[in-house]
């Protein structure tokens, strides 16, 4: 299985360091900031989440900047299963999709039948997208069969919903494992592969994203199927988002520069994107007080 060949950590990191020096200015920057907004899965995954909080978030998702109607909606709102119904209600009629984490996020430490029933439930409650976690314990103990079987079962339970498979790369220990897990997840039917739950450090890094994008590219070459990518956790500034888009652009190219194939899982990123857009449009540095907090 050459597709799961080795990686070299230092050289991967050197590559992203070089790509990070790209200087994105002017119209290119404007385009990227706007694209990043449309690619954002606006996320809240806290024990203290309430109906009120996710309602606000959902409104923010539809109209991120009330003062500027030219700002597009984000891609999705991502919440815990408990809040899918609320989000679904607010987002009805908008282009923003409902995403639910599932499979006993973030640890995934539950029997498969519970993961399957949770998945069925969030889809029934209106989730367009399901963000599942892989069983890292099974993966690290070498039980790849179990990892694949679970993804396939959840895939089936998710029906037509878009299935994003979280690898929790911060727990996998090496880029070799990241690449292997990416391949397993894609082979098992993932529509997206996603770096992290956001509950484990390190979460999304540029280097891990590059390794996953390269796996996506190779999977496409082998099978013809295009799988999307979602870095999540730790991307909070426009400057970071642009670096991610550069890595995406120079690894998978323009075919992937779309919310259909690339998402940012983030919460505070959105306002920084909006501030940067406003700064570019007005030529004035911005204050957080002028941007709504959801």
């Amino acid at each position: 299985m050459r597709s799961v060949g080795p990686t070299d950590e230092v050289m991967v990191e050197q590559r992203v360091a070089t790509l990070s020096t790209r200087s994105i200015k002017g119209e290119s920057k404007k385009w990227a900031l706007r694209a990043a907004v449309t690619m954002t899965d606006l996320t809240t995954l806290e024990g203290m989440d309430t109906v009120g909080k996710v309602r606000q978030l959902s409104h923010k998702a539809i109209r991120p900047d009330p003062t500027d109607p030219s700002i597009p909606s984000v891609a999705a709102v991502c919440v815990y299963p408990n809040l899918v119904g609320v989000v679904s209600e607010v987002l009805r009629g908008s282009t923003v999709r409902v995403a639910a984490v599932s499979t006993y996020f973030p640890s995934g430490q539950a029997p498969l039948d519970m993961k399957v029933s949770e998945t069925r439930r969030v889809v029934a409650d209106g989730a367009d997208e399901v963000d599942m976690v892989i069983d890292r314990g099974a993966f690290l103990s070498g039980d790849y069969r179990k990892v694949v079987d679970e993804i396939e079962a959840v895939r089936e339970a998710a029906g037509d919903a878009c299935l994003k498979v979280i690898l929790e790369t911060g727990e996998l220990g090496s880029y070799d494992n990241v690449r292997k897990a990416s391949m397993l997840a894609m082979a098992a039917g993932a529509d997206f592969i996603k770096t992290s739950t956001g509950k484990v450090q390190p979460a999304a890094t540029l280097a891990v994203t590059l390794v996953m994008l390269e796996a996506i590219r190779d999977f496409r070459a082998m099978t013809g199927r295009a799988v999307g990518m979602k870095p999540a956790g730790g991307i909070s500034t426009a400057k970071q988002a642009i670096k991610w888009l550069v890595v995406l652009n120079e690894t998978l190219g323009s075919d992937w520069m779309t919310p259909d194939r690339f998402r940012f899982g983030a919460s505070s990123l959105l306002n920084d994107l909006l501030m940067q857009i406003k700064w570019l449009n007005t030529g004035r540095y911005q204050s957080a007080d002028y941007f709504t907090k959801a």
Binding site: I24, S28, W31, A32, N249, G253, S254, T258
Partner: peptide, 12 residues
């Protein structure tokens, strides 16, 4: 958003 014909992102 129109994934059929996404523009190529050129660096200015």
């Amino acid at each position: 958003a129109d994934s059929e014909s996404p523009p190529r992102w050129e660096y200015q």
